[in-house]
Amino acid sequence: MDHRMKTISHGWTVTAYIFLIIFTLITVLPVLWMLYSSFKPMGEIMMHPLRLPSAPTLANYRKAFEYGNLVVSFLNSVFYSGISTVSTVLLALGAGFALTKFGYKSSKVYFGFFTLGLLITVNSVITPLFIMETSTGLYNTRLGVVLPYIAFGLPMAILLSTSYIRGIPDALIEAAVIDGADYVQIFWKIILIVSTPVMATMAILTFLGNWNEFLMVFTLTSGDNMRSLPVSINSFAGRLNEDYGLQFAALVVGTVPMFILYLVAHESVIKGFGEGALKE
């Protein structure tokens, strides 16, 4: 019996290794290839597509930064994703507190409205949103990008915040009320502090979503100085670009910021995604 079980699990170990190694290679090889090709001149990429660079050069990066509008786009991406993530998280925690700890009957209706948003995608509102922004002067402004980012981040964030805050003991809040604290103080001094774990999950999911977002910046802005990284990379290194080295360099620039974040915080990122869909 024991022996049989050992051989069985041995078989599974081999299967598991083969499957996982193949999957890992398929995932990582294209990314690695992109990385080292970005240090090769165009001619070498054409002649020896797979070889490591014989004389690594930064020329592609120099050109990409010179013509690709990458610095401005990077800063825009930081601005759009940063501001909207902070706002989404704060607003969602505020709403989550209001919806779970105040005991008003209207809470259910509000909550229902917010969860409805989980089913609504950007392309179902993009036409009227475009018309609204062009007629109110929000078109091609940073506020005109940040506001929709916040709105689309809210449903998931509120789902997460309500289920977390519901679990905070009422006694904690009642004690503060007896001590004479008002609700806004309770929000800043208790709810925010106690909610740090869920805040991290919300922030990661929101930030990553915003950082990689394409359609809204693409359609709601027009100036080069308003573009985010994905949009600039698409117009600079898109399908029509024939300089492969330059294209690879731009793609690497688009990948690196998130990769660094992933490298530093991969445990929380993976946990965030794993748990994001749990909360139902």
């Binding site: 995932t27 990379i233 998130m258 990769f259 974040l261 995604f273």
Partner: peptide, 9 residues
């Protein structure tokens, strides 16, 4: 890893 990379890239 791919989940962290933007669709455009």
């Amino acid at each position: 890893l791919p989940v962290t990379i933007s669709s455009v890239v």
